[in-house]
Amino acid sequence: MIAHTKIRVASVQFALRHTPEPQHFFDRVAHFVRAAADYGAHFVCFPEHFTLQLLSGTEVMLSPAHAIAKLSGYRVPLRDHLASLARGHSINIVGGSHATAMEGGAIRNISMVALRDGTVHERHKLHPTPDEKSVWEIGGGDSAEPIETEYGPIGVMICYDSEFPEMARALTDRGARLFFVPYCTDTRHGHLRVRYCCHARTVENQCYVVTSGLVGNVANVANLDMAYAQSAILTPSDFGFARDGIAVEATENAEMMVVADLDMTALDAARARGSVRNLHDRRPELYEVSWRA
């Protein structure tokens, strides 16, 4: 693996729109991937549940069970589309998340991560929210391993996952220094839970976190009344980083993309000589996060 000292990342704050034909959605995804590649980004991230708008073209609002069945039919087309875009534009894509039924019937919320060579890795949300459980019957996945990329291991935490410090610490212990958090929250309260927790993860693990949220509203999709977000690219809170620990952030509730350059050597310096050295100063003889493969 080649050591990369600078990594350019892009976060897409994707808007919900009426989608009469699936191709309209796929074309919009392609537009942002192309734009991120044109800006020289190495990674681009989309929001959680961004595929739910594919249901808006139905004549009647689907029940949750019928909605999952319909969404499941898009799993392979989405996977193939992301792989083709990643390979064609030489960029790594964190494909938000997609609710789908697995073989055997279990329902999962999955992030498809397409790497530049066209390979696709899937990471399941480990901690579905009470709403996801009760309405969509989504269950949690059982693996939180980092994804190996040419820029080093990356971690993917889908929305609520970011609110569990053990998950980020376990991924950090496996080498991840760059995290992607696709999220979907309906209120400012929910958005701030994700934002505050992601800020905490950057301090605890001396890492970078990219958040990508869904915004707006769309009719005819059950349990998707509205979406509130202010996506951001977050840094540790120390000398050598952005003053407020925010490399860049989007305008709240507006469809847009933000881009930032992340200096990986700054993480090395912070871990070795920072004002605080959270990773070094842990007390594993008193407490630890254990990894279960």
Rank of each mutant, 00 (worst) to 15 (best):
T129N: 05
Y208V: 03
H127N: 15
T149F: 02
G118F: 00
T172D: 09
N223Y: 04
G152N: 02
S84V: 08
G40A: 07
I91M: 05
G141H: 01
H127D: 11
A144F: 15
N205S: 02
D27A: 06
A3S: 06
A242S: 14
S72Q: 02
I2S: 15
M256K: 06
T185P: 15
G118Y: 01
L192W: 14
A222P: 00
F239K: 14
D117N: 10
H199L: 14
E148P: 05
Y151W: 15
K70H: 15
Q53T: 10
V12A: 14
T185E: 14
D186T: 07
G152W: 01
S84N: 13
T19K: 10
G213M: 15
A247N: 07
L286M: 10
D38V: 14
A260Q: 00
L54F: 01
P165E: 09
A232H: 07
L115N: 00
R292E: 13
R87Q: 13
F164R: 15
L234K: 06
V258Y: 03
T202A: 05
E103F: 11
A219L: 15
N223L: 01
N205K: 03
Y74W: 12
S237I: 06
T202D: 01
R292S: 11
V210A: 02
T202H: 04
R188Q: 14
V210I: 08
L171M: 12
K6Y: 09
V258M: 11
E148V: 12
A242N: 05
V135C: 02
R116T: 10
D244P: 06
C198P: 13
H121Y: 06
M157W: 04
V181Y: 08
A272M: 12
K6A: 08
I91L: 05
H199Q: 09
Q13P: 05
N205M: 01
I68F: 00
V94D: 03
L62A: 02
G155T: 11
E132R: 08
G88H: 05
M157L: 11
L71Q: 01
R169I: 13
G240W: 06
D173W: 04
M226L: 08
R177K: 05
H124V: 10
D225F: 07
Y39H: 13
K70A: 11
C45T: 14
S134I: 03
G118K: 00
S97G: 04
L16N: 07
V221Q: 04
R34V: 15
V289F: 03
Y287D: 09
A176E: 02
L171Y: 09
W291P: 03
V44M: 06
M61E: 14
M167L: 07
Q23G: 11
W136G: 00
Y160T: 11
F179T: 01
